[in-house]
């Protein structure tokens, strides 16, 4: 006969694990100000081969109530959630959904082609495509034949270099990203 019954005691560990996960997540410094509490909207960031993909859950938010701007490597999401003013406060039995005006700024990962950002809002999910700068996309390096005794790294056409020369001009202007 077992003396200890482990049956449900693991649930406690699961809670702990979740809590630690949460704490660790909030230490991430890539996202400004995400150290205390939860910001709205919550964001996920994925890395694909040629782009980064940023997703957010924005249910009920229409394209005209959403504003995305980019300036100096900082992407700002600004928006207005559903208008509740038509319904008097005392009529609410429960209110859990986010409302009002919100804003969130994210420092973009390095080496993103800011001018090529695109975004779409569909079924309450916002997707922002951040194409990687060409320098980040892995590229084949040609190795020269041993006879010439030199290794040559082939650089493609270098629009990267030129775009790197003018970030100050680009950063000084705020650009709105059209949302599909």
């Amino acid at each position: 006969m077992p003396v200890f019954r482990w049956g449900h005691s693991w649930d406690a560990f699961r809670d702990l694990e979740r809590e630690v996960d949460r704490l660790l997540q909030s230490v991430n410094l890539t996202f400004q100000g995400f150290r205390f509490g939860r910001q709205f909207p919550s964001l996920n960031l994925f890395e694909l081969e040629e782009e980064y993909l940023l997703t957010a859950e924005l249910p009920g938010i229409r394209v005209e109530d959403l504003e995305l701007t980019i300036a100096g490597g900082v992407l700002t999401l600004k928006g207005k959630s559903h208008d509740t003013s038509a319904i008097p406060e005392e009529r609410y039995r429960r209110q859990e959904r986010v409302r009002g005006v919100w804003q969130r700024a994210i420092t973009l990962p390095e080496r993103v082609q800011e001018e090529k950002l695109s975004a779409e809002l569909n079924l309450g999910i916002l997707k922002i495509h951040l194409p990687k700068a060409e320098a980040v996309i892995p590229r084949q390096i040609q190795v020269a034949d041993g006879d010439s005794s030199s290794v040559q790294a082939e650089r493609g056409a270098s629009p990267v270099a030129t775009s790197n020369n003018q970030p100050t001009i680009r950063h000084s202007t705020t650009k709105s990203i059209p949302i599909e």
């Binding site: 859950e57 039995r93 859990e96 079924l123 309450g124």
Partner: peptide, 22 residues
């Protein structure tokens, strides 16, 4: 999902955030 429930003259209205659902 987070929900709101409010009362109207005719009854109750429930709204639920279900992003990604059709």
């Amino acid at each position: 999902p987070p929900i709101d429930i409010f009362e109207t003259d005719e009854g109750l209205v429930l709204r639920a955030d279900l992003p990604g659902v059709t």
